[in-house]
Design a protein around this nucleic acid. Structure first.
Length: 197
DNA sequence: TAGGCCATCTGGTCCT
DNA sequence: AGGACCAGATGGCCTA
């Protein structure tokens, strides 16, 4: 989406308020109305006018500088958010995809990733336990491995867990795996990870 | 039409 | 001083 600067000066934007130098000064300092604003001679008033014009220019310049700085900051912020979204897209890319190609929202992506990492960690832990029992080398996660069997029963794990198991990040989960990728699995993570939800 | 999600703007704060 | 980061506000788009 292209940046839109046309609304910078919209009525909703009060960052660059209208500063009518003459008006504001007039309201604050009407001649004779205050000891701070004594009546002036015509010469003095002419000089004051010149000073006013000069000051008005410098204030206008300040406003322009401020506006430029704001626009630059907006641009940086836009780029920063784009980078953040790129990172989120990359994260979506390594997560198992849903069958209907529904794009995960930002919060779903983060929760799913958290969940997914937990699941992989559990898989490795259980594989190590099994390897310890049999004396075999540690069983690493592989697609279709029985290391995922804990996820469907939910009883082979010592800790409460999200009821799903996914295959390796680089490849989409098998269709049957999606049955575990229910909303409860994605959103129920808060039950065992305080503060995540 | 209400609610969710998102992009953008904005001003404040912290850091270099 | 300027940039990065953050959170609040706002408006647009989409869907149930």
């Amino acid at each position: 989406m292209e940046p839109v600067y046309s609304d910078i000066d919209s009525s909703s934007c009060d960052f660059f308020p209208h500063t009518d130098d003459e008006d504001s000064r007039g309201s604050l300092c009407s001649p004779g109305s205050s000891p701070l604003c004594p009546p002036r001679s015509p010469e003095q008033q002419q000089q004051q006018k010149k000073r006013r014009r000069g000051r008005a220019r410098s204030e206008a310049t300040v406003q322009v500088v401020k506006k430029n700085r704001r626009l630059k900051a907006n641009d940086r912020e836009r780029n920063r958010m784009h980078n953040l979204n790129d990172a989120l897209d990359a994260l979506r890319g390594v997560l198992p995809a849903f069958p209907d190609e529904t794009k995960l929202t930002k919060i779903e992506t983060l929760r799913f990733a958290h969940n997914y990492i937990w699941a992989l960690s559990e898989t490795i832990r259980i594989a190590d336990l099994q390897a310890g029992k049999t004396g075999d080398a540690p069983l690493l996660l592989s697609p279709g491995s029985d290391a995922c069997s804990w996820s469907s029963s939910g009883s082979s794990s010592s800790s409460s867990s999200p009821a799903y198991c996914a295959s390796s990040p680089g490849s989409p989960a098998a269709p049957e795996d999606y049955s575990y990728l229910q909303q409860d699995a994605l959103y129920g993570f808060h039950s065992f990870v305080p503060g995540i939800y």
